[in-house]
Simulated scan of single mutants.
Amino acid sequence: MSRMPPGRAAALGAAVAALLVTGCGQQDGRDEGAGNAPGAGVPSHPVTADSLDPDTFPRRGAELSEQPPQPSRDCAGRTGTLLEPGPVDSAMGLRAMTVWLTHCGSGTYRLNGYPTLQVLAEDGTAFDVHSLRGAEPITTGVRDPGPHPVTLRHGESATAGVVWRNTYTDTTEDPVNGTRLQVLPAPGRPARTVAPDGGIDLGSTGRIGATAWRKAPAAETGQSRPAEPGAGRPTAPVPSTPAS
């Protein structure tokens, strides 16, 4: 699977950049559900550097920062949203992990549907892959709650499952071995970039799937109330190994 030519990436990136807004953690009463039917696939187009938060966009030549073994969900000193990857579970070429989005801003943060994913090389170059709405095209072992409204208050989190396969059958193309995953939570929201442990090895499949966002229950972290800035660091659940 080859990378996008610079000209094509720039043209596609301009279209996606129009969906993004600057800033983060803004109060928004919209429900983002249009075009989020399960099973659909969308081209995973690159997003331009001008449309990203400069603190989260991977700079060319920058070294990968170490990721915590579990998401911290710690809003201390942060505004907007905090995006963190959970551990990557690998089994017979199938990869699965949980992405955590924590609302660290004021007001409410609304989600409804599937995140759009983009696989990036270490230098920030986008691979030409497809982001699938739903996990079933890749595996039936990961449950998808389907699109539904999710409203987060300060300190509350939402999760989405991310799955892909490391299968290489097309020797005419280079395998996709990304180091970063760019996540667009919903249309009109700023994209965030994380570096999953072990990277994103799609082989020649050209596909990566995500379940719909769901609100993380307080029981998963042992909290009865949303986390306050500076609160303790709860432990995220590790996704079980999918059966298929």
Rank of each mutant, 00 (worst) to 15 (best):
residue 103 H to C: 05
residue 137 P to I: 00
residue 206 G to D: 15
residue 210 A to V: 05
residue 1 M to A: 11
residue 155 G to C: 08
residue 77 G to I: 02
residue 51 S to L: 04
residue 211 T to W: 08
residue 224 S to D: 12
residue 60 R to G: 03
residue 123 D to I: 14
residue 123 D to N: 14
residue 225 R to K: 09
residue 77 G to K: 00
residue 88 V to T: 09
residue 42 V to S: 10
residue 62 A to W: 10
residue 21 V to M: 10
residue 234 P to C: 07
residue 132 L to M: 14
residue 153 R to E: 03
residue 140 T to F: 10
residue 240 S to Q: 11
residue 33 G to S: 09
residue 58 P to E: 02
residue 234 P to I: 12
residue 53 D to H: 05
residue 180 R to H: 15
residue 195 A to K: 14
residue 31 D to R: 04
residue 6 P to S: 06
residue 94 L to F: 04
residue 4 M to K: 07
residue 156 E to K: 13
residue 178 G to E: 02
residue 201 D to G: 07
residue 168 Y to C: 06
residue 136 E to T: 15
residue 98 T to M: 09
residue 138 I to C: 07
residue 227 A to M: 10
residue 226 P to L: 02
residue 75 C to M: 09
residue 52 L to I: 10
residue 130 H to C: 04
residue 114 Y to R: 01
residue 190 P to K: 05
residue 48 T to Q: 11
residue 188 G to T: 13
residue 108 T to E: 00
residue 93 G to M: 07
residue 92 M to L: 11
residue 39 G to E: 08
residue 203 G to H: 01
residue 232 G to D: 04
residue 242 P to I: 03
residue 110 R to P: 07
residue 20 L to T: 15
residue 6 P to L: 04
residue 242 P to W: 03
residue 239 P to V: 02
residue 108 T to Q: 09
residue 9 A to L: 10
residue 238 V to H: 13
residue 206 G to E: 15
residue 209 G to W: 00
residue 67 Q to S: 12
